[in-house]
């Protein structure tokens, strides 16, 4: 564990808590893409299959349980509890256009052609594009609530901090995972446009409204 990865995990944790607070306090899921949350649930389920078979640390296990638990709770809030406030008309991204190519790529490009490894690779690739339905929804509605912007900023920062973690681990431990790094770079790049809007607008107390 290093400071970059710890900050990354804390940023990820913060993002999930911000999202849950937004939903619980406003009792509304307006502006939130249920499809992205379903993709995140798929990512965590696929990645944490080893939750019961390989023990890394208490921290690792607790975080995995928390991430899986909260993402399914989020889906429950969107599609059941606060269903009336879910804006399905604007949440229209065709996720099959993500899942099929990502699934195929995981079969072709992986570290080891073994079931658990292919599923792990699938979760890494899927995570890099899982935010697209959410960004697509914001581009369709033309705006994002400030709290949703904070959620996206924390979520985007988490993987950017992981990139720093991988640089550190390469020099400190000789650890290098090309698949995770490439997917992490793609994932972070997808947030760049949003980061720009967040820093130039939200930081000045304005709301994000597209086109910028």
């Amino acid at each position: 564990m290093n400071i970059f990865r710890l900050c990354g995990d804390m940023s990820h944790l913060a993002a999930i808590i911000i999202l849950l607070l937004k939903m619980w306090k406003t009792r509304s899921v307006a502006g939130i893409s249920g499809k992205s949350q379903i993709l995140f649930a798929t990512v965590f389920t696929a990645r944490y299959l080893d939750l019961f078979t390989s023990f890394i640390s208490i921290y690792n296990t607790c975080m995995k349980v928390f991430f899986i638990g909260t993402v399914y709770f989020t889906i429950y809030l969107i599609y059941m509890k606060f269903k009336a406030t879910y804006d399905s008309n604007h949440d229209s991204f065709r996720v099959e256009f993500l899942i099929v190519p990502v699934g195929g790529l995981a079969f072709l490009v992986n570290h080891e052609f073994a079931p658990l490894e292919i599923i792990w690779t699938f979760s890494i690739y899927l995570e890099s594009v899982a935010i697209l339905p959410q960004l697509f929804m914001i581009s369709k509605t033309g705006e994002a609530e400030t709290i949703t912007s904070h959620y996206l900023f924390a979520l985007g920062s988490y993987r950017a901090l992981y990139l720093c973690n991988w640089i550190y681990r390469y020099y400190a431990e000789g650890f290098f995972d090309l698949i995770a790094v490439v997917a992490g770079v793609v994932q972070t790049i997808l947030y760049c446009d949003f980061f720009y809007l967040y820093i130039t607008k939200v930081m000045k107390g304005k709301k994000i409204s597209l086109p910028a």
Binding site: F67, N165, E173, F175, F176
Partner: peptide, 10 residues
């Protein structure tokens, strides 16, 4: 450096 066989990151 090889990648860890076990994925130790979240």
């Amino acid at each position: 450096g090889a990648k860890l066989g076990l994925h130790d990151e979240l």
